[in-house]
């Protein structure tokens, strides 16, 4: 009866001693790893990868080596949380200008742009964009198949079925910019979080006139907004032939929104928060087989 007890105890003690010995014999952990562990304790721990590093721990390691990484590869989730931001500032001994860095993503398309035909292929914008440059007459129209939905770590993106356009909830969005990189048509833009207006059209070149004429909901180049703007925040971009907004000058008088005939300029974030609008949204990309 005593033999099993003695064997078990002996093996337990031997394993314990072995662990202790390996712990002692091997060189101690490098300093940077300890600091990285401390820093990654302050990070959100979502491992979303929006900062450009594989996971929060790798980001912590990079921060431990050089704290200026925070400015080149900003953690967007952290910027939303004042408490966490303050504690990280303390640990890293950094000064962070909050207003300048805080951003929100906006899908710059009004939706409803005309389709060329029915698309029944693989349900992703990237695949659809490779066939005849997408199934919309406008080369800058949202395809609404929801590639951005999949990458969003905050689940902030939905598809508005009526307009067939992706919509980003400004309250949930943390401005990480993953969707901006994911969109094959490059129509998701980052705007300052305190922006009062957004321009929901993404024309890139003056040559895209055929697309322009067919989209009833895009910018028609009337330039009324430029004339209406009192503070000079809106200027005309001649190359792209669209208005450009300087958010630092905007005084949120809303005059441009009133005069815009196609409602391409919208009030932000109020435009996204109407309950009527919200009820129409639905998660997912079921639309790709039916309406398109």
């Amino acid at each position: 009866m005593w033999i099993p007890i003695i064997i078990l105890t002996a093996i337990g003690i031997i394993s314990g001693v072995l662990i202790w010995v390996t712990n002692r014999v091997l060189p101690p952990e490098p300093e940077s790893l300890k600091k990285a562990e401390e820093i990654s304790g302050e990070l959100p721990g979502m491992n979303c990868g929006a900062c450009g590093y594989p996971g929060c721990f790798a980001y912590g390691q990079a921060l431990a080596k050089d704290k200026n990484v925070f400015f080149s590869n900003t953690c967007a989730t952290l910027l939303q949380d004042q408490k966490m931001l303050t504690s990280l500032e303390k640990t890293l001994n950094l000064k962070i200008d909050r207003n300048a860095m805080n951003k929100k993503a906006v899908v710059a398309c009004n939706g409803n742009s005309e389709t060329i035909g029915t698309y029944l292929g693989v349900g992703s914008c990237k695949s659809a964009n490779k066939i005849l440059k997408g199934f919309k007459t406008c080369p800058y129209g949202c395809l609404g198949l929801g590639d951005c939905i999949k990458v969003c770590p905050q689940n902030a993106i939905t598809i508005d079925i009526d307009k067939n356009v992706a919509v980003i909830d400004p309250q949930k969005c943390n401005g990480c910019g993953l969707c901006v990189k994911e969109c094959p048509r490059k129509i998701i833009k980052l705007v300052p979080a305190n922006a009062k207006i957004v321009f929901l059209c993404s024309y890139e070149s003056i040559k895209d006139i055929p697309g322009r004429e067919k989209c009833d909901f895009g910018c028609i180049r009337c330039r009324k907004c430029v004339k209406a703007c009192e503070s000079g925040a809106i200027t005309w971009n001649k190359e792209k032939s669209i208005p450009e907004i300087d958010y630092s000058k905007c005084i949120s008088c809303d005059k441009c929104i009133e005069v815009c005939p196609t409602k391409v300029l919208r009030k932000y974030p109020d435009f996204y928060l109407k309950p009527k609008e919200k009820s129409k949204m639905s998660q997912g990309r079921d639309i790709c087989h039916g309406d398109v």
């Binding site: 078990l8 337990g12 394993s15 662990i19 060189p27």
Partner: peptide, 16 residues
């Protein structure tokens, strides 16, 4: 017991 201890040791060795 042995497997748990071994994994622990392997982890320490790899980490260091």
């Amino acid at each position: 017991l042995v497997i748990a201890a071994l994994v622990q040791i392997v982890e320490i060795v790899i980490k260091r």
